[in-house]
Design a protein around this nucleic acid. Structure first.
Lengths: 192, 192
DNA sequence: GTCGTCATGTAATTCGTTACATGATTTT
DNA sequence: AAAATCATGTAACGAATTACATGACGAC
């Protein structure tokens, strides 16, 4: 999922300026699924325009700078469809917390406990935010996604509440750099 | 979570060559949490060595190329601790499937249905893989993480099974490029 | 004899961020 | 008077990937 595709997808929802796109990814229900900086949005829109996938109309309101309001062309619509019809890349699950958990035996108890606590707080805060959106926003695909997110966070929190102590108990049970067995078959040289 | 930190974390589990690290991230229980290419692993290891965080011993077995087996130094251990003690970046949840779901009203039914089906298959396959690992590998932090993953995938699958049809039913309910209301407050120009 | 595994490394390229540059208007 | 919002864009930089380059050995 690159910026290009994300731009097309948002523009399919309705015309918007670069500034609008940034806002949608920063605030509101879209923010959990993507983000991009102005430094990539503007060049991307310019490129899409060159390729004929979008066109823009210049809009100048009193007292405000010029706005370039972009909308999809017919080829843009096709490109959007194609991008979303392509076999999806599987979600990559890159979690700093996972790395920490993997290293539990090498970490002091307080670091682990603190990390688990922070994690729980963060997840609860995100859950609360989603629940707030769910209660005010009922438009079809957004409420579905928000429900998905709520489900996900609740499940995650439940797991941590049930098994967090187990993880914390591993603290300090091994020495870093030692010969802790990770994945014996993954060490090419050693024949053990 | 960058390659540097990930290298330090894996090396804390025991000495390894660049090739080993790649293997650990590609196969086995680590693969779900990180990945890196040789093009980034080797320069990273060289840099870590220059900084004195790791040292290596050259190992040449008969009939095989030279191996550089890296291990953490004392400063490496400290850097590892520091990196993992730092406030964790929250997991970013960037899912191509989420973008697709967000666009459900603009997509033809078959595209959506197919995507949901593929998603379910993928998630079930990942679950099965984790369950296989769980039954053979009982070493402490890994089995914890695997249990976390299993919990996560089961929860995700359950949600899709329960609510997938609801999502599929949204197909084709809006025209791309139209004025589908996404986030009214996120459109800067329009005062509506 | 070709392909896969082991093993290391460099160069080109891509994708994106941060910081910079500009400038009017409204709010504090 | 300062800061925030609206609005667009460029330039420098970073982090990582893919592709390239090399070479021996074992399996089929």
């Amino acid at each position: 999922m690159n910026i290009r595709t994300a731009c097309l997808a948002l523009l399919a929802h309705g015309e918007a300026s670069g500034y609008d796109l940034k806002k949608r990814w920063t605030e509101g229900p879209f923010s959990r699924f993507f983000d991009a900086s102005f430094g990539s949005i503007y060049p991307t829109l310019a490129k899409l325009e060159q390729e004929g996938l979008v066109l823009f109309r210049q809009e100048g309101q009193a007292g405000k700078p010029l706005r370039k309001v972009y909308s999809l062309t017919e080829s843009g619509r096709q490109a959007f469809m194609e991008a979303l019809s392509a076999p999806p890349e599987p979600d990559v699950f890159r979690s700093a917390f996972a790395l920490l958990a993997l290293c539990a035996p090498f970490l002091p108890a307080q670091v682990l406990e603190r990390a688990i606590e922070v994690r729980l707080n963060d997840q609860r805060a995100e859950l609360a935010e989603l629940e707030a959106i769910a209660s005010t926003d009922t438009r079809a695909p957004i409420s579905w996604l928000v429900a998905w997110g709520i489900h996900h966070f609740r499940s995650d929190i439940a797991f941590l509440e049930a098994k967090g102590a187990e993880l914390a108990a591993m603290a300090g049970s091994a020495e870093p750099g030692g010969t802790y067995e990770v994945c014996p078959s993954c060490t090419s040289g050693a024949d053990a």
